[in-house]
C-alpha cells in the first residue's frame, strides 16, 4: 500500500515512500518543542487533560524529551540552519541532528548517503560537525 511502484522503502537510500517525499521531517528536539507546547496548552484548557492524550502521544513525548540533544529552541533553530546550509535532504538533516555523530567516519556510517556521488567531502563534513559542536557548547 505504501510502497511506490513496488520499490521497497529504504532509509539508507532515502527511499521514503510517496507521501513522505514532500513531508517535513522533524528532529527529536523539534518534536519535543511541539509536543510540550501542545501538552501545556491542553492542560490549561481542561482539568482532566491526561485523558485526552493517546498512548502514542505520551510515549512519543517521553521519548523525544529523553532523546533531544538540544533543549533551547534557539539552538534547535541554529542546528537546522547549519544542516540545511549543506544541501542535505530533510531525512539526513534529522538523522544527524538526532544522533550527533562526533567524527567524520561516524557521520558517514550513520548517513551513508551523504558521502555518495561526491556530495560532501570529508572536510565539509568535518566543518559541519564542528559547527554543531559549537552550538551545543554555547546552548
Amino acid at each position: 500500500m505504501a510502497s511506490t511502484g513496488g520499490e521497497e522503502e529504504d532509509a539508507s537510500e532515502l527511499k521514503l515512500g510517496e507521501d513522505f517525499l514532500k513531508a517535513k521531517c522533524l528532529m527529536n528536539a523539534e518534536v519535543a518543542l511541539i509536543l510540550e507546547k501542545k501538552f501545556e496548552t491542553l492542560q490549561q484548557l481542561s482539568e482532566d487533560a491526561s485523558s485526552q492524550f493517546s498512548q502514542v502521544f505520551e510515549k512519543s513525548l517521553q521519548y523525544v524529551k529523553r532523546f533531544s540533544r538540544y533543549q533551547n529552541p534557539e539552538a534547535v533553530k541554529q542546528v537546522r540552519e547549519v544542516l540545511s546550509r549543506n544541501q542535505l535532504a530533510e531525512f539526513e538533516v534529522c538523522v544527524i541532528g538526532n544522533l550527533c555523530p562526533e567524527t567524520v567516519e561516524e557521520a558517514k556510517a550513520l548517513v551513508p548517503s551523504i558521502a555518495k556521488k561526491d556530495r560532501m567531502d570529508d572536510e565539509q563534513i568535518e566543518q559541519m560537525l564542528a559547527d554543531l559542536a559549537t552550538i551545543k557548547k554555547y546552548e
Binding site: 505504501a2 518534536v31 511541539i34 509536543l35 501542545k38 485526552q52 498512548q55 502514542v56 512519543s60
Partner: peptide, 20 residues
Amino acid sequence: VEDLNLLKCTEEHGYYVAAT
C-alpha cells in the same frame, strides 16, 4: 483527534502522534 487516537497507526503513515 478521537478518530486518530483510535486508529493509532497505519501502514501508510505510521503512528499518529498529534494533529498540529
